[in-house]
């Protein structure tokens, strides 16, 4: 139940500093969450408890203890907003070239890393186990390659900043001028 409460709290916190790119990552579920929150604030405590349990049961709950997460790219990558579908294709290792033809280099954090979990849920709107399953299907059938997994956000910043064509993600507070934000709409 704690998970569910944190989830709603996090959704509320995010409302304060939503930018176009991040907002879009939450779009569908975010809006439905807001309407659910309104419901939660207005009703009887019993209804709240029931609703939170229901949210947990149908798998809406998600513990994200980190700040908002943004997609970042190497400064060599021309920044045009991409759709969530394209972001899924890139991080799913199914899209291998930027529109200008240069190779895409994908960097991720470990499956259990809170920033990775938040990225999957908020930006891609999928669960980490689904991304792992998609990579495994590619890697063990020979039809694709796995992304490069890094140990920390510091390493993420350094590698995306230094690798042409690189894409990754970072908590917003860590983003600096060595990389660019790539809006996902």
């Amino acid at each position: 139940m704690g998970v569910g409460v944190r989830q709603f709290a996090a959704a509320g916190r995010r409302k304060g500093h939503q930018e176009n790119n991040h907002r879009s990552g939450l779009k569908e579920r975010g809006e439905s969450q807001e309407s659910r929150m309104a419901l939660l604030n207005n009703k009887h405590p019993f209804v709240r408890v029931v609703l939170i349990y229901a949210a947990l049961l149908i798998g809406l709950g998600g513990a994200s203890d980190c700040e908002a997460v943004d997609v970042i790219v190497n400064p060599s990558v021309p920044v045009h907003p991409i759709s969530r579908g394209v972001a899924r294709a890139i991080f799913g290792m199914r899209m291998t070239r930027w529109p200008d033809g240069s190779p895409i280099r994908v960097f991720v954090l470990g499956d259990g890393d809170p920033v990775h979990v938040a990225f999957c849920k908020e930006v891609l709107d999928i669960y980490p186990y689904q991304l792992r399953a998609a990579w495994d299907r590619l890697v063990y059938s020979g039809s694709g390659q796995a992304p490069t997994e890094l140990a920390s956000e510091q390493e993420m910043l350094a590698r995306v900043a230094s690798t042409p064509g690189a894409i990754g993600y970072l908590e917003r507070r860590l983003v600096n001028v060595r990389v660019r934000l790539l809006p996902v709409q």
Partner: peptide
Amino acid sequence: LGVNASYRPDPDLQFSAQ
């Protein structure tokens, strides 16, 4: 037991074997 290798000299071209 399995081991595979993939080699992608270009984003559009991949050689794979297991």
